[in-house]
């Protein structure tokens, strides 16, 4: 048995190579954010000046603020719509148009970003031409982000709902609770962790998107990825390195916290099992 667990030097080597490939570029990025030279590949001393320059860059800070607002709003609406969609897909009796419903909900997953972006842009321009107003800006980014993140959240929630033991809901219904009450008292608390991870997924997808936002947004709204994209198009820029390092540190912190919570939950679960075994 133990010989089967050994993977040999080749596997370990490939794993090491893969991790190096994944992490070295990010590490280099962070190191050069402390470089005092403007040229991003020549090291000429340690300095915090690009961080200071970053916090003085109002356009960049504004863009970050726009991104956070859009991500927060679109993730929230997306989770609400996705919860409804997932309930329809997993709990509702078949109805006319269900096939189309399922296709519409999941199609954005395989749609290339540029196609989604182009189609939404064309629709927004058609509609604004119709009403004679300009609808481009933060609102269009928000609507576009809700639409494309909803598909991902629906997949997460549907799979959680599908594996959920239905007997709890049925028992509550037998005891006289109506569907709405069952949903809020039984279903919702159980799928809460999935809702939270769905919200986080939608939030990060929205924060990360550059293609859809740059298509549908007019000059009135610039998100952080749009700002980064237009800056780095002209070549490496140490201010972006500083921004990137801050983002990496944020993600690393979130990962450590998430890992800690997971670890604690696992310990608690093991203890519960042991207790249950003792009592039984």
């Amino acid at each position: 048995m133990s010989s089967l667990h050994r993977t040999g030097l080749f596997g370990k080597g490939m794993l090491g190579f893969g991790y190096a490939f994944l992490y070295l570029p990010i590490l280099i990025l962070i190191i050069f954010s402390f470089n005092s030279s403007r040229i991003s590949t020549v090291w000429s001393g340690f300095s915090f000046k690009w961080y200071i320059a970053l916090f003085k860059d109002d356009a960049m800070l504004n863009a970050a603020w726009v991104s956070l607002k859009v991500a927060f709003a679109s993730a929230t609406v997306s989770v609400i719509l996705a919860t409804l969609a997932a309930m329809v897909l997993t709990r509702f009796r078949p109805f006319r148009g269900r096939t189309l419903f399922g296709a519409l909900i999941t199609a954005p997953l395989v749609m290339p970003e540029v196609v989604t972006a182009l189609s939404l842009l064309l629709m927004f321009t058609t509609v604004s031409g119709f009403f004679g107003t300009s609808s481009k800006g933060m609102l269009s980014i928000f609507l576009a982000h809700v639409t494309f993140t909803m598909a991902f959240v629906t997949v997460v929630l549907s799979s959680r709902l599908a594996e959920l033991d239905k007997s709890l809901e049925e028992a509550a219904m037998d005891l006289g609770a109506n569907r709405v009450k069952v949903f809020f008292v039984i279903t919702l608390p159980i799928i809460m962790p999935a809702l939270v991870s769905g919200w986080l997924l939608a939030f990060t997808l929205s924060l990360d998107d550059v293609v859809i936002a740059s298509f549908v947004s007019g000059p009135s709204a610039t998100t952080l990825p749009m700002k980064i994209f237009s800056t780095v198009r002209l070549g490496p820029n140490p201010k972006i390195n500083a921004l990137a390092s801050l983002l990496v540190m944020l993600v690393a912190q979130a990962a450590v916290i998430g890992w800690y919570i997971m670890q604690r939950q696992e310990k608690r679960r093991l203890r519960d099992i042991q207790l249950a075994l003792k009592e039984g």
Partner: peptide
């Protein structure tokens, strides 16, 4: 080990692509 594979994809896609610009110039 799996977490280490997923972690980089939490960092902005754009930033990860940008990281290669300084390396490949």
């Amino acid at each position: 080990a799996l977490m280490l594979v997923i972690l980089p994809s939490w960092i902005s896609f754009l930033i990860r692509i940008y990281a290669w610009m300084g390396i490949l110039q």
